[in-house]
């Protein structure tokens, strides 16, 4: 059974200049144990999609349209209290900045034990054992001693390991990792990605990996969803999308990754900038920057067409199905 499916999700923010949609008509699905990469520029709506799935959209933002179904059960309509019980227990989350994600005045152990006891009804001693075990699994040396220390006594990379332990300690089936390596040193990034991949394999947890780093996606993910201006423009298996991108935007993204091999003089760049949510053009949002723009592109919005395995939202491809 599909673990999570998001169907035609629109998140709206009412504001002074009228309502803007942070994400529009987003549909995606993820299977148990799968790692789905979500890639796009900042502001494309990747993090907002993650926030919508765990039910933590900042007011006045709200889900205006669509559904979120977890293990066959619709969750976007649940009460705040029901949603709280799902968060941590069935959907975990990993945040971007490990330096600010941990409470400075509580020990690492307190934070782990509280999370475990909130979701799994265990006596404190047993929860503590599990907490130590989790610290060991994420690679914290001497976890029996480190469990009673405070976050400021850990380095950035170690803190991100603690964050991962916190996200996984109540054994969720799905974890949303929002830019888990962006705030880290380059040398530590690879370790954290390796750790995530190993834990996903060991525990069978599915991961939605939100990042703007195509390299991380290439290394880690099974499938990738490319977002642009609040919409998904292309979905597909990582190898396919990387080798043969269907959407001109994805193509531009791929071209801008540095590669081993014969180097071009300069890395190609996509001209222009992504439109802000309140200034999106009618038709395809990418049209103003698209090298293959056609007349229809600025009039009619292309729908995401294809299967969950491979889909693209582009008029070019609609004419010639891949």
């Amino acid at each position: 059974m599909t673990l999570l499916s998001v169907e035609n999700l629109t998140v709206a923010f009412p504001g002074r200049r009228g309502t803007v949609n942070a994400i529009e008509d987003v549909s995606l699905s993820i299977e148990p144990g799968e790692i789905l990469g979500m890639v796009g520029e900042s502001g494309a709506g990747k993090s907002m999609t993650g926030a919508a799935i765990i039910g933590l959209i900042e007011p006045p933002g709200h889900i205006a349209k669509g559904r979120i179904v977890l293990e066959g059960e619709r969750i976007d309509t649940k009460s705040p209290e029901q949603m709280r019980r799902i968060r941590g227990r069935r959907i975990g989350a990993i945040f971007q900045d490990p330096l600010t994600s941990l409470n400075p005045v509580l020990t690492v152990g307190d934070q782990l034990i509280e999370t475990i006891q909130t979701h799994l009804k265990l006596p404190r001693a047993e929860a503590r054992e599990r907490a130590i075990d989790w610290l060991r699994r994420v690679g914290i040396p001497a976890p029996e001693a480190r469990i009673d220390t405070y976050p400021h006594q850990y380095s950035g990379g170690m803190r991100q390991r603690v964050v991962i332990a916190l996200a996984l300690c109540a054994e969720p089936r799905l974890v949303i990792a929002d830019e888990p390596t962006t705030a880290l040193d380059v040398s530590v990034q690879a370790q954290i990605i390796a750790l995530l991949r190993r834990l996903a394999r060991e525990t069978g947890v599915a991961v939605v990996l939100v990042t703007h780093d195509m390299g991380v996606i290439a290394e880690t993910a099974d499938r990738v969803a490319v977002m642009y201006a609040g919409r998904i423009v292309e979905v597909g298996a990582v190898a396919d999308v990387l080798n043969a991108p269907n959407h001109p935007y994805t193509e531009g993204l791929m071209a801008s990754i540095p590669r081993i091999g014969p180097r071009p003089e300069i890395l190609p760049q996509i001209e222009g900038a992504m439109p802000r949510p309140h200034a999106r053009p009618p038709g395809c949002a990418f049209a103003p920057r698209c090298p293959n723009r056609m007349d229809v592109c600025s009039e009619q919005r292309p729908e995401l067409e294809g299967s969950a395995a491979a889909a693209v939202a582009c008029h070019l491809k609609a004419e010639v199905p891949a």
Binding site: R85, R87, F95
Partner: peptide, 11 residues
């Protein structure tokens, strides 16, 4: 962030 992360853990 640590309060947001605490919410995300379902506390």
């Amino acid at each position: 962030d640590y309060i947001k992360f605490a919410r995300a853990r379902g506390l």
